[in-house]
Amino acid sequence: MEMKVKIPFQQLLRAVRTLTPAEKSKLRDELKEDMVEKDDKSSFVEMLIDGPVFSKEEIKVIESNRKSIAAWRTKG
């Protein structure tokens, strides 16, 4: 079961400051894991952006094919 609680930032900050050094270290590790997950998403986006693209010639062929298909569909 998951519960969400809204805690004002200042109250959360006070609570973190009362943690022992070991607890702070554990909290830091948990937060780092969250950041790694976000980095995975950003690397996926970068892969998509850097991925292969169509050349101008390929785009012309695709446009020509689309026009041919559209003409064929409208014949009737």
Score class of each variant (00 low, 15 high):
D34M: 08
M1I: 14
S25P: 03
V16S: 04
F9Q: 15
L13P: 02
D50M: 11
A15W: 14
L27M: 11
K75G: 06
V36K: 11
P8T: 08
E33L: 02
D40H: 04
M35Y: 09
E37A: 05
L19M: 15
E57D: 02
I7K: 10
G76T: 02
D29R: 14
D40F: 02
E46I: 00
E63K: 13
V61K: 08
P21V: 06
I59G: 00
W72H: 05
V45T: 00
K6M: 04
A71H: 13
V16G: 02
I49K: 10
M1T: 15
G76P: 01
V61G: 01
L19C: 10
K41I: 10
V53K: 12
D50K: 13
G76C: 01
G76Q: 02
K56F: 01
K60H: 00
K4L: 15
E30L: 09
E46S: 03
R17E: 13
Q10W: 08
M47R: 08
Q11S: 13
R28M: 14
V53S: 10
I69H: 12
V45M: 00
E58F: 01
K41R: 12
A70K: 13
G51R: 07
K56I: 00
E63N: 12
K6R: 15
V45N: 00
R17Y: 05
V45F: 00
L13H: 09
R66Q: 10
L27Y: 04
R28C: 08
A71T: 04
D50E: 12
I62S: 01
S64H: 06
G51K: 06
L19Y: 07
K60M: 01
K75W: 07
D50Q: 09
R73A: 07
I49C: 02
N65V: 07
E58K: 00
L12E: 07
R17K: 14
L12A: 12
S55L: 02
S68D: 09
T18W: 08
N65P: 01
Q10C: 07
L48K: 07
R14T: 11
V61Q: 01
L12R: 05
R66T: 10
S42W: 08
D29S: 12
L27A: 14
K75D: 09
M3C: 12
K56M: 00
V36E: 09
I62F: 12
D40W: 02
F9R: 15
I59A: 00
S43I: 04
D34N: 08
N65F: 05
K60W: 03
D34W: 01
R17V: 09
T74W: 00
T18R: 13
R28F: 11
K24G: 14
S43N: 00
E33T: 03
M3P: 06
D39W: 11
K38W: 05
